[in-house]
């Protein structure tokens, strides 16, 4: 017997996307395998590592802890949607590059989305706030030091971009 499929539509990185999926399909799988937006990574599938973090209606959430059908009508931004409009690296992406904030790069998209949402609310974070902001994401390569540096650098870049 074939599994029942449900239609879903959502905005992903500014574009309307839709599909027909079983209710149990995780948002992470929908993004990665149905929409082929493979920048969102899956590191644990139980909500601890943070690699799958995306923005849902502007807030950072774990895409492995959501069903695609539950975000029907929502607005999703993934790491692929965080570059600048001219195609250059977005502030957080650029900061990770400048500060050597990534090594293998697998956890990186989850950090970048988390930090982007964080900086929207805290445009001038202290080092302590930066550390706290990334404390729900696991990285096995960097020891986090350069990621914290990247948060602070990203804030600088964003503020520079705001200047006329």
């Amino acid at each position: 017997m074939s599994e029942k499929h449900i239609d879903v539509s959502m905005t992903v990185n500014g574009f309307p996307r839709s599909g027909s999926v079983p209710a149990r399909r995780l948002l992470s799988d929908f993004l990665r395998h149905d929409l082929q937006l493979t920048g969102t990574h899956v590191g644990c599938e139980h909500g601890v590592c943070g690699a799958c973090t995306v923005l849902l209606n502007g807030k950072a959430v774990r895409s492995c802890l959501l069903f695609a059908v539950s975000v029907d009508g929502g607005e999703i931004v993934t790491v692929e949607g965080l570059a600048n409009q001219d195609g250059s690296l977005g502030p957080v992406q650029q900061a990770f590059h400048e500060c050597h904030g990534l090594q293998c790069g697998f956890c990186t998209p989850g950090f970048i989305t988390t930090i982007s949402a964080f900086l929207d609310e805290h445009p001038n974070p202290t080092e302590g706030q930066a550390r706290e902001a990334i404390a729900g994401n696991l990285c096995r390569c960097t020891g986090y030091q350069n990621i914290i540096k990247s948060v602070l650098r990203a804030a600088e870049i964003r503020n520079e971009m705001m200047q006329p």
């Binding site: 209710a23 149990r24 995780l26 599938e45 139980h46 909500g47 774990r62 492995c64 802890l65 959501l66 069903f67 059908v69 539950s70």
Partner: peptide
């Protein structure tokens, strides 16, 4: 779903019906 979905994914719980109240 932050506690429930990990249990579902690990198949430690498998309710037949999920009522999404959102």
């Amino acid at each position: 779903g932050q506690s429930l979905i990990p249990l579902l994914s690990m198949r430690l719980a498998s309710p037949k019906v999920l009522v999404d109240i959102n």
